[in-house]
Design a protein around this nucleic acid. Structure first.
Lengths: 178, 178
DNA sequence: TGCATTCAGTCAACGTCACTGACATAAATC
DNA sequence: GATTTATGTCAGTGACGTTGACTGAATGCA
C-alpha cells in the first residue's frame, strides 16, 4: 500500500484480536462502508441537482439524458430496461425533454413502432453541464487516491451489484461505443 | 490540510505524455465511475427499500433510524445536521416513528427544550432488518474484492465528499461510540 | 427582570418522481 | 385475421423533499 494507506485503512475501533487479515470484514467496517456510501452519494448527486433545479428538472431527467447520450438511438424499451422504472414514469420525463427540445424522438427504421432517442445540441449542452461537476469530483478523488485505490473502488462497486444483473450492467458500463 | 497533506499531492499535474500512469483518469474512466456509482447505489438501496415498503416507510425512515441507532440520545437539531433535510421533512418521519413505537423521544436533561431520540426494542429490530441485507451485500463484496480493494474503495469515497464537510463526515463515520 | 434567541413542533401549499391499473393505437408477427 | 409488441396516455396514490409562517417553551444575556 502506497503513501496514503492511513486514509482508508481499517482502523477497527473495536480492535478485535486475532490476525489482522480479516479486520476489513468487521461489523464496524461494514457499517462505515454503509455510511460512506450514503454520504458520498449524497454529495455526488448534489452538483447536478443544483443544475437541474434551475430548469425545474429532477434526477429522473438527468438519468434519461445520461443514457440517451451514452446510447444514441436507444429505444424507449431499451431505456426502460436500463433505468428499471415504469413506462409511465419515463414517459413523463421524456415528454418534457422532447417538448423542451433537448431530446429528439424519431421513428424506428426497421420497426416503425419503435422510437429512437437522441440528444439535440441543446440536450448535449445540458448533459455536459450536468456531468462535468461529477467528472470533476471524480477526477479529483481519483487523482488524490491514486490508481490502485481507483481499481479497488471499481472492484468493490462491481461486486456490490445484484448478481443477477451484474454481467449486463458491467457490459453496459464498460462498453464504450462512441 | 495538515495531517494528510500527501494525499492531495497533485499527481495528475504534469506529464500527460507519460506512460500508462494516468490512464485511470481518462474521461472514459470517469464516466464508468459515474455509472458504477449509479448502479451500485441503486442495488445497494434496493434491499432495505423492500423491507421498508412492507411497513409503508421510505428511505427517509431508514436514514433516521440508522442515525438514531448510531448516536443514541441525538437531538432533533443533531439529526437535522447529519441528514441535511428540513425540520418539516424530518418531523413528518419522526412523528410516525414515535407513534409507531419505534423511536422514543425524551426531554433533554440539561436543556429541556431538546429531545433525545432513541430506538425502542422494536426500533432496534427494524434497524437490524434494514441494515442486515446491506451488511451482507458489503460483506460479500468486501470479501470478494479483498482488503486492498476495500481500502481503495474507502479512500475514493472519502475523497468524493464535499471538501467543506469532509472532516465532519469522516469523524462521524469513524467514530465508534458504542 | 425583561427581551432576544434557540429548540422543537406544526400548518399549509407545492413539486418531483416513483408506483399501479386501465386503456388506446399502430405496427409487426404468427 | 388474431395475437403480440412498442409506445403513449389517463387517473389515482404516496413518499419525501421544499419554502414560508407561526406557535410555545426554555434558555441566555443585558
Amino acid at each position: 500500500m502506497p503513501e496514503n494507506a492511513e486514509i482508508g485503512a481499517p482502523r477497527a475501533a473495536g480492535a478485535p484480536s486475532g490476525p489482522d487479515q480479516l479486520l476489513f470484514l468487521t461489523e464496524e467496517q461494514l457499517r462505515q462502508g454503509i455510511e460512506l456510501m450514503f454520504f458520498a452519494y449524497r454529495d455526488f448527486t448534489s452538483d447536478p441537482d443544483a443544475v437541474l433545479a434551475e430548469r425545474g428538472y429532477g434526477r429522473a431527467h438527468h438519468r434519461a439524458i445520461h443514457f440517451i447520450k451514452r446510447r444514441p438511438g436507444v429505444t424507449i424499451a431499451g431505456l426502460l430496461d436500463i433505468l428499471k422504472v415504469t413506462k409511465q414514469s419515463l414517459n413523463r420525463v421524456l415528454r418534457q425533454l422532447i417538448e423542451d427540445g433537448l431530446v429528439e424522438s424519431s421513428m424506428g427504421e426497421v420497426d416503425r413502432r419503435q422510437r429512437n432517442l437522441r440528444l439535440t445540441a441543446e440536450g448535449e449542452a445540458l448533459e455536459h453541464a450536468l456531468s462535468e461537476p461529477q467528472r470533476a469530483r471524480l477526477r479529483r478523488a481519483f487523482s488524490e487516491a491514486g490508481p490502485q485505490a481507483v481499481a479497488g473502488f471499481r472492484q468493490v462497486l462491481a461486486r456490490m451489484l445484484d448478481e443477477g444483473g451484474r454481467d449486463a450492467v458491467m457490459s453496459l458500463v464498460e462498453r464504450s461505443e462512441r
